[in-house]
Amino acid sequence: MIRSLALVLALTAPAAANPLDDHVLPRVAAFAGATEALAQTDCDVDALKAAYAPAATAWAAMSHLTLGPVEAEGRGQVVLFWPDGRDATRRGLALLRERGAEGWTPEGIARASAAARGLGALERLIWEAEAEPCALTRALTRDLADTAARIETGWTNGFADLMRTPGTAGNARFLDESEVRAAFFTALMSGLEHLSDRRLGAPLGTFAEPRPARAELRRSGLSLAMVVAALEGMRELAAAMADAPETDAAFARALDAARRVDTPDLSQVAEPGGRLRVEALQTAVDAIRQVADVEIGQGLGIAQGFNSADGD
């Protein structure tokens, strides 16, 4: 009786979460789907804007997954070339326009600079140029969807298997299970760092010199939505990696802090009262890093950067 009850409990207990099935694969599929929907959208500016936002936030929810297929061929930069302190996006797009329609084939776009492709270039076209020329807009939405599809295929058709089979013959990328956990943990920690230092830190600048024009995707007013999507995506990853209630609570506090930010483009960084709320959000993000480092990282026994930090 007791044995059979235990058996029932074992069978009905939810399977342990794992980052691949409960985070990575659904998120890369969602990004591929959202960008494909954008690519299927005609050159109607309102329709493009409506389809652009979910594609952008789907990226933010997985942009911390820089390992594997995103890292290959610099695809992360191709999806969104940002930060772009020198406005390479404007110059790249101008070059692409000059080249004319014969340069807007898939091959032509693939040869263009990363800054002229992806979400950053599309935001300029849709919000600042009425999506004209239409053929260029369509070529760029197609290119973005193709890149997203290659990222998804890279995961489903190779990299996920490498992460599932550490230590097997031919798998030089992951020599044991601890390296798989370390790879996810590194993605989480560097994603949080990017969120704090770049997504929030770039527009914050300094008190004396705030930089609202440096906010990510400010033209489309998606800067805050990108922050929220990134938090939600990384919260999902953290939950799939470990039973980490304190980390989860820290994510919840950061999402609360994000709700108190009221300018979608984070332009409030330029006025003292509003700035405080963005700073409070940044502080909350930094707190996640500290909590996760202890709660998740110490359990993994990860030795970070023995050589990379050496400096010789």
């Binding site: 030089a172 020599l175 390296e179 790879a183 030795a303 050589n307 990379s308």
Partner: peptide
């Protein structure tokens, strides 16, 4: 490979070492 740094000629190719304790050679890891 994480923290890959050491490299030298080995066999027809190379051997690599990394900060995680890994050694990669053409004969395996």
């Amino acid at each position: 490979r994480p923290d890959i740094c050491g490299v030298t000629a080995a066999g027809g190719g190379f051997a690599f070492t990394d900060g995680l304790g890994g050694i990669l050679t053409e004969r395996g890891t």
